[in-house]
Each structure stands twice: as C-alpha cells, then as structure tokens.
Design a protein around this nucleic acid. Structure first.
Length: 274
DNA sequence: AGGTGCACCTCGATGC
DNA sequence: TGCATCGA
DNA sequence: GTGCACC
C-alpha cells in the first residue's frame, strides 16, 4: 500500500534515471483506471518532452516536463513503476509504457487499477482538484503542533482519521497513522479535540520520526510494494503495531489489538496508548 | 459532521 | 485438487 | 487508497 514513504522511495529511485530523459512515445494498453486515462492529453503533454524534475505531493508523483507539461501519477493500492528494457516481457497489468531516449521504458503496472495517470499543463495542474485540496506536507515546517491543534479544535473526530485525512495532512495512510500514534502513546480512538498541546507535539514528532525512518528503510512491503528495481522495503521489520494483533507490545508487553475504525483495521497497544 | 458501508478491481492466502 | 471466501 | 451515498 503505497503511502508517502513508499512514493518517496520510488521518487528517489526514479529521479536519477528519469530527469534529463526525453519521453519519445507512450503506449496505453488499458485506460480503465480509477479515473480513465485520457490518452489524447497524455500524448499532447508528454510526447517529446524532457523530464526536468521529479517531485512528490502527498502520495502523488509529479514529473515536471519541458514546455510546462506535468505528468501526475498515483499508485493507488497496487501500482508500481519500473524501468525496463523494451525487449523484456511486459508483466500482466502493465497499463502504460513510456519509451525514453535512454533506451529504457518506464512501465506503470497496477493490477487493481485504483491508481491514476494524468497529464496536463502547469496552469491546469495548479488548480487540479485532487492536488489543490491536499493539506500540509508532513515532512515540512508546515506541520506544526499549532496547525494540528487548529485542525483538531475544529472537529469531533478521533485522532487517527484526522491524521489520515489528506485534506489536513497528506500522505499518511493506515500503516503510518497506526505507527505514529503508537510512538506518541496516543490511543487512535481518542477525540482529537481532547488531546493536550503537549501530546499533539509528540504526535507531530512521532509522524516525522516514523515517516523519516520508513523512507530510510525504503518503505514497507507487507504484500507487494516494490521500488523501481523490484526491491522491497524493509520498514515492516520495524513496525510496532501494524499487522501485529495478538503479539506483545515491545514497549509494555501488553497484547496488540486490532479494531475496525472508519472501515479500516486500526492497530494499537491498549497498555501504552491512551 | 462524521462514522459506516460499499464501490472501484485483481490476486494470493486461507480453509473446507 | 478444486472452489469459495476474505482481505490487502 | 479514495470517493460516495446513507444514516
């Protein structure tokens, strides 16, 4: 499940191979993603363009192309990007292929088709709703205890769904929300508005800490995440609560529990998360 | 407002 | 081995 | 992972 650390891992692996390369042609073999691929727009905004920079906003990868083009990719639940030689067989569910002047091709594969590929001009991207509605980037100075306190004060929601709300803080999914709250010692079902400033500070620190460590580990591979060269992440070895229901908490020894919250499995330690 | 359930779709693990 | 179910 | 309709 690509969350921010997985997308950042892909971005870092891809950038050196992609920046400076020209996209020669595009082949789309399946348009039916969550949002259908607009082949015309894809060709118009990416064909013949040079990748000038590879950026990320939340869980979106954004390639900044020559002539003000933008190629925007979201990996959904099962998306992956690989660089391969054109002769190598294309794995099943490879929906889009970008031929590069390096002789390699960039392949987008997404078995479940929850991902997204879009291309547009810079001015269109600036107002594009999926990007425009995103909240602050968690690994920037924009995520402060004061910001989180304001967001918390405006709602009756629990802290975990608040952290996972892309309109508040972008990029934190189920795994890292669970992990950060364990590091901070805060119960995922606790009302955000009833959390002290001191503990909100700890949550901000915990989010920063968990995301940073996860990026260093190359992301989390629970079922199928793989980076550009097919290599897995290693942060699953450091997970304290996620997917550990029934196992003892490393900090206090109590048994990790799993409960459904907002339709997702939430993992927490009933001993040291209050 | 926000929790919940469901839809989108495929695969692999599980269980009988 | 095959088929249904479940969850990622 | 995300958006939507339904309480």
């Amino acid at each position: 499940m690509p969350e921010l650390p997985e997308v950042e891992t892909v971005r870092r692996a891809l950038a050196p191979k992609l920046v400076g390369r020209r996209i020669q042609s595009i082949a789309v073999t399946e348009t039916r993603l969550r949002v259908p691929i607009d082949e015309k727009a894809l060709g118009r905004h990416t064909a013949g363009r040079v990748v000038e920079h590879l950026g990320r906003r939340g869980k979106f990868l954004i390639a900044y192309l020559s002539d003000q083009g933008r190629l925007i990719i979201h990996l959904g639940m099962s998306g992956s990007l690989t660089l391969a030689s054109p002769e190598s067989p294309r794995p099943a569910h490879t929906h889009a292929t970008f031929s590069l002047d390096s002789g390699k091709e960039l392949r987008f594969r997404d078995p479940r088709r929850f991902g997204l590929i879009a291309a547009m001009s810079a001015s269109e991207a600036d107002v594009w709703a999926p990007l425009a509605r995103l909240g602050v980037e968690p690994l920037t100075e924009a995520l402060t205890p004061a910001y989180l306190a304001t967001a918390a004060s405006r709602t009756t929601r629990a802290i975990k769904p608040l952290l996972m709300d892309n309109g508040v803080v972008t990029g934190i999914g189920n795994i890292y929300a669970s992990e950060a709250l364990h590091v901070a010692g805060v119960h995922p079902f606790r009302r955000a508005s009833r959390i002290s400033t001191a503990r909100l500070c700890r949550i901000v620190d915990a989010v920063t800490d968990v995301l940073t460590r996860a990026i260093s580990a190359g992301g989390t591979t629970i079922s199928d995440f793989a980076s550009v060269d097919g290599s897995p992440g290693w942060f699953q070895l450091s997970l304290a609560v996620y997917a550990r229901a029934g196992e003892p908490c490393h900090r206090c020894g109590k048994t990790i529990r799993s409960k459904v919250q907002c339709g997702r499995s939430t993992y927490y330690c009933p001993g040291c998360q209050t």
